[in-house]
Structure formats: C-alpha cells, structure tokens
C-alpha cells in the first residue's frame, strides 16, 4: 500500500460513533476545524451535516442539535436545510445506500429494468431498507456518469454498465465485504474527512492542502 492509499483508507473508515448520537470527540475536533475554514460559521452547515452523517451513517437528531449549537443557529435551520438535500438522510439507512439513476441516458440504457431487477434481488422497493440494515435503495437523478449508463452509486462510489447479473455480483461482493476497501461506509466523505491530516508525522493544514491536490477528484 502506498502512503496515499493508506491515508485514504484511514480517513474513509467509520470511526467509533458516540453513544448519544452526537459527534465523537474526534468528530467534534474536525467540526471545529471545518468551521474555522469559513468567514461565517453558518457556512459550515453542509460540511458538518456530512461529517455527522459520516459518523452514524445518517443524520441523527442529536447531531443536528450539536451542529446548531456549534454554528449558533437554530435546530430548525439545520433540519430544514438538511431536508432539502437527498444525500443527507434524516432516518437510519442501510450500510450501503444504492442510488440508481433513472434519467434519460440511463433510462434508455435500461435503468428501469435494472431497478426492477434490483428490487427483486434485494426484496425491497425504492425508498426502503433491507431488514438486515445492509442495503437502502434510492432512485436518483442524473449522476453524471452517462457514458456508463445504466449507472448507480453505492455510498458515493460509481458503478456503471450494469445489468441484473452484474448487479447480483456487486451485491454479493458488498455483502461479503470484498469491496471493503473500495466502498466506504455510508456517509463517510473524504471531502470533509481530510480537513486536517491524520497521517502520523504530518501536521495541520499544510498537510491537508497537500493531500487536497494529490487526492484529486476521486
């Protein structure tokens, strides 16, 4: 493993979440670092929502309260804003959130057929979560990967050119943990995790800005 892979793996693992649904100690530190990036505190609202979602897999009521407290805004403003965005989940979701694109390119490429087979394979319909809390199925608008239509996202990771068979393998791999290094736990985003470095020996924002460049898009 290269140093970069090591770094990525480290920031993309789910940390031990706190029991009360709020931020862990490390999360709280990250939250403060995120807030310090903005001239106005409330600008950090969405990054903080992602950070909290990364800790629990969804946005708990307690973490919304903590965010409100940190940003000196009301809880209604936090929950109101969070409810606007599909990527923020206000209810518990499975370990893997599968978002299937059904916009035009994917639709022509057989997205609805794929969706149907997924529903059949997982035994749930769109918007539901499997009983073992492994998979949540969502219908998504264009994911920007039209070249690989029909495509879907699993926890913000892209998978394209799928059909029923390919999806079956994907699900099997996800369930068996074969994709553990590729697909991070739901909600964990490198974008909010790399605010300051966790790599030993490196410190603070200098390291963070370096990794920003080296990490690139994905």
């Amino acid at each position: 493993m290269t140093e970069k892979d090591n770094y990525l793996a480290k920031i993309l693992e789910r940390k031990q979440p706190s029991d009360d649904g709020g931020f862990s100690e490390e999360g709280l530190e990250r939250a403060k670092a995120l807030i310090s990036l903005y001239p106005k505190k409330r600008s950090a609202l969405i990054p903080l929502c992602h950070l909290a979602q990364g800790e629990h897999g969804w946005l708990t009521e307690r973490s919304m309260e903590e965010i409100a407290e940190l940003l000196e805004i009301s809880v209604a403003e936090v929950s109101g804003t969070a409810s606007f965005y599909d990527m923020l989940h206000l209810e518990p979701v499975g370990n893997y959130v599968i978002s299937v694109c059904t916009n035009i390119a994917c639709m022509l490429g057989g997205a609805y057929e794929l969706l149907e087979s997924i529903e059949e394979r997982l035994g749930i319909s769109v918007g539901q979560t499997t009983l073992d809390m492994q998979f949540t199925l969502e219908e998504a608008e264009c994911l920007g990967a039209c070249d690989t239509a029909p495509c879907l996202q699993v926890n913000s990771r892209f998978f394209g050119n799928l059909d029923a068979v390919a999806f079956d393998k994907l699900v099997t791999d996800l369930a068996s943990g074969a994709l553990a290094g590729v697909v991070p736990p739901h909600g964990v985003l490198s974008r909010v995790q790399r605010v300051f470095s966790l790599m030993s020996g490196e410190q603070g924002e200098a390291a963070a800005s370096n990794t920003d460049e080296t990490l690139g898009q994905k």
Binding site: E65, V78, S79, S83
Partner: peptide
C-alpha cells in the same frame, strides 16, 4: 421568527412542491 423575535424555531424544510414550514424534530 428569525428576524423580529430571534427565535428561529421554524424554517422551511423539503424541496419543490414538498416544501413545508417545519420545526426541528427536537425543538
């Protein structure tokens, strides 16, 4: 609630035709 009373306990939630005025689940 936000500008005059300074008690922003209600805000818009949701999107599009599902936009509603809502309180937070806890307050």
């Amino acid at each position: 609630a936000a500008e005059i009373a300074g008690d922003p306990q209600i805000d818009f939630a949701g999107r599009g035709d599902q936009t509603i005025v809502a309180t937070s689940p806890t307050q």
